[in-house]
Design a protein around this nucleic acid. Structure first.
Lengths: 101, 101
DNA sequence: CATGACACCGATTGTAGTACCGGGGATAAC
DNA sequence: GTTATCCCCGGTACTACAATCGGTGTCATG
């Protein structure tokens, strides 16, 4: 394979990521949030709607920064319900447990 | 534009990200680290060598997880020397200051 | 010397992220 | 009715990532 299609588990994690960001945005406008984060409003909308499952690290970091979210907390949260679905490697042994800051 | 080419600032940030990860890996083998994180060894090598400037959020999160790194600390660190280079939006006002958990 | 394991590199392939362009709907103000 | 703002959506375009396949070099071991 050259670029593995996203697994169902990754797609669901993308959904949780989007829902988390939308919740954290609260009353703020999507447009202003996107501009403050330095990303396109369409990009933010696609991430929030879960249509972009694995966004770039700087993109999520910038958005989390604007929303006052901890990246570690975000990562831990969206992996909460992911235990039963092995990602792509048989080496997967314990993901989401070394999050202490 | 449709998909802006990476800016020099983003490329340099990618270099810092790679250097940081390589430093954090220490004596551990690149192969084992990549497999533990569930990513391809080539992918980890490209990230560490700075040839992939904006990796996916889950990719960096998985690697940081294996290395015991805080994502917030990583993001803050690689943005340290980035103040003089405006990213892509004039809205950029203060990046890397809301990292408290 | 040969073998194996590890790191590095160049080239290639295919999917996916980012962003722009319209258009649509809903609300509120003038 | 018009204007404005905000959110949502489908389609499109271009770049970048993720991964595989060879090949090269090194170092340790047999």
């Amino acid at each position: 394979m050259v670029r593995l299609p996203l697994t169902p588990a990754e797609l669901e994690r993308g959904q949780r990521l989007g829902a988390l960001l939308r919740r954290a945005r609260g009353e703020r406008s999507m447009l202003g949030t996107a501009l403050d984060a330095g990303v396109s409003p369409e990009t933010l909308r696609k991430i929030e709607s879960g249509r972009v499952a694995t966004p770039a690290f700087p993109t999520i970091a910038a958005i989390a920064d604007v929303l006052g979210l901890s990246l570690d907390a975000v990562w831990a949260e969206i992996n909460r319900a992911d235990a039963a679905a092995p990602a792509r490697s048989a080496h997967e042994h314990h993901a989401g447990e070394r999050l202490a800051l």
